[in-house]
Design a protein around this nucleic acid. Structure first.
Lengths: 343, 343
DNA sequence: TTCCATTACCAAATCGCTTTGGACGATTTT
DNA sequence: AAAATCGTCCAAAGCGATTTGGTAATGGAA
């Protein structure tokens, strides 16, 4: 059933039917009702491509998920983020189109998306410190919003970020207050902007108390379970091993827990752990009492809000870019306790 | 840059330019070269919507991800699956469009997708035993392929599944061979087809050896870490607790490990665990030696292959449906050992 | 030399929608 | 009573591609 058929069946012109369905005023209330009823009856839905061609808009938003050539890893956070974004899109009538792209090909893909015109805007995932994608998108003039920020990019753009620095500063403070002085940092890849900010918070907290930063206690890798395990095993071998660890995600935190257990120690008593918790749906941090002490910020909510920002930008292109900084909350679980060693 | 402009710049008609770019024979080799060069120079890309309108195809494939209203959980497997599918789509020139939908709304969404015509085919995720989506899609005549199967649906359709029954039969046999007689099953939700098949394999293996099936040892829930933990804690309280567990995914397996540790026991010595492992990129089962004994089958590869099946079906609509059954491999890790109790 | 394929191109129709620029009575204003 | 306004509707022109149904020029066969 297309517009032509529907109009014919109603004895009206396509113009009138189209206007009736799209809420234009130059249609009498009576015929509007009649049209709506018929559209319902025949379950008429305007063809997306035709509508897009006529309006110049595609009612779709692109998410380009970078796949690093070396690791071929999909960020586990991603599922929940798009679940959040998807809710917002659905409510606003947008589709979501996904491209998984080798990071070397990203520029080409963005340009193509624009040229082919199959999205009205783009969400940029996993920004690096000096991310070339931002100025690229600015140049080609495709509306976009970034999940995170790029520290070294100065032009204004839409972003939504968690206050990474503050979260890790507070977490480090919390450990320091418990008497810990040797604190291991298991960060994400250092080129990622969030990892850089987290390290900054950690370092600042230490320096505030006059504690030297020991490079041996800082690691930076892709956040797998095994990374958490191996890194802690190794740090435990140090002459003066950490009594506490700060880690960027629940997944390596689970690896840390394994390493602690394997060493015959008890997490929260012998060794403290704080993790960042993205509040993933399948990896809840305990149901009643949180398992890990954690800085928590829902990535799903981030998805919802960022989608909203982008949609606003699209429907109002000359609007100034919007930004939003979410604060993580520190929830105390059973993975932290006072430093029992010496002093 | 659109076709009209490009044609004008070349002093050719739109027809000829279009034909040159799409490889039709009625264009001289010389002009084809000239057109290709100009297209490259101006980085011309045909507008997707216009092309789609003209050809009647959208070059996009829909993935409808069901979100259960109660749990609001995104299946963790999903990220890796679409990473696999995405590779195939990219190579074949298809886009991927995602809809996250409350499961109550699924029928409406499928019908709309068809009516609006914004996908050429659909991948059905997480089929249940008697899944109404399959006959629905058959009815509305939209090509589709299912990741998994629906036991109670008899009509032929495209699917790709892992041999769930056989995997769990072999895993159970493996535990029985090690002398275990009390084996707990931590399954996924029983309404899901895969969970039903896995239980069938488990039950069959037990019955083959004349061992009675104890309902107290079988659980069926959404596969979170906490589920694994709680279920095992509870089963440990039984008068005659299991000496081994079989679990449907790595995530609850991690919870099981935690429960075992918390009880002061050692996994692989005091209690054996076998998990199914979807080979998720961020949750590898150990780097060198597998941590868990596991039945493994790459969900990413499943994505690749299922996408290929669907694309074939789309480009050749009267072709008979294709099916593919993947066998899981049983890899022995450090989570299993002989039953030390009694006998 | 005439006729017929073949080659290489083009004008215009088409896909299904939105939107522009009227048209035509009925009502209100002057 | 004539003019202006308003409320409803419509025909036709886009949007940017593909595709149908041609035409003119060339070369070989009859």
């Amino acid at each position: 059933m297309n517009l032509k058929d529907l109009a014919a069946r109603l004895g009206l012109s396509q113009t009138t039917v189209s206007r009736a369905l799209n809420g234009y005023p130059e249609v009498s209330e009576a015929t509007r009702q009649r049209v709506a009823a018929a559209a319902e009856k025949y379950s008429y839905r305007p063809n997306t491509r035709a509508k897009g061609l006529a309006t110049g808009r595609s009612m779709a938003i692109g998410h380009v998920i970078p796949i690093s050539a070396q690791h071929e890893m999909v960020n586990p956070v991603f599922g929940d983020f798009i679940a959040g974004a998807g809710e917002t899109y659905a409510a606003a009538g947008y589709d979501m189109v996904l491209s998984l792209v080798q990071d070397s090909q990203e520029e080409r893909v963005y340009r193509e998306m624009f040229a082919k015109g199959n999205v009205d805007g783009i969400v940029v995932h996993a920004p690096e410190m000096q991310d070339p994608r931002i100025s690229l998108l600015q140049d080609i003039g495709l509306p976009f919003a970034v999940h995170g920020r790029a520290s070294d990019v100065q032009i204004p753009y839409n972003w939504l970020d968690m206050n990474n620095k503050n979260a890790f500063l507070r977490a480090t403070d919390f450990l320091l207050d418990l008497g810990h002085r040797r604190i291991g940092l298991l960060n994400g890849l250092e080129k990622m902007d969030f990892a850089h900010r987290r390290r900054t918070g950690y370092v600042e907290a230490l320096l505030n108390r006059g504690i030297a930063v020991d490079p041996q206690l800082m690691r930076s890798e892709e956040m797998t379970e095994n990374y958490g395990y191996q890194a802690v095993r190794q740090m435990m071998e140090l002459p003066d091993p950490p009594t506490a660890y700060l880690v960027s995600s629940m997944i390596p935190a689970i690896g840390i827990r394994r390493a602690i257990h394997d060493a015959g120690l008890v997490m929260g008593r012998d060794i403290s752990v704080i993790t960042h918790d993205d509040d993933l749906s399948y990896l809840r941090n305990g149901d009643d009492v949180p398992l890990f002490t954690a800085t928590r910020s829902s990535v799903r909510e981030a998805g919802q809000q960022l989608a909203r920002i982008l949609i606003e930008q699209i429907s109002n292109p000359q609007q100034a870019p919007k930004t939003k900084l979410l604060e993580a909350e520190l929830t105390v679980g059973r993975s932290t306790g006072p430093n029992l060693e010496g002093r």
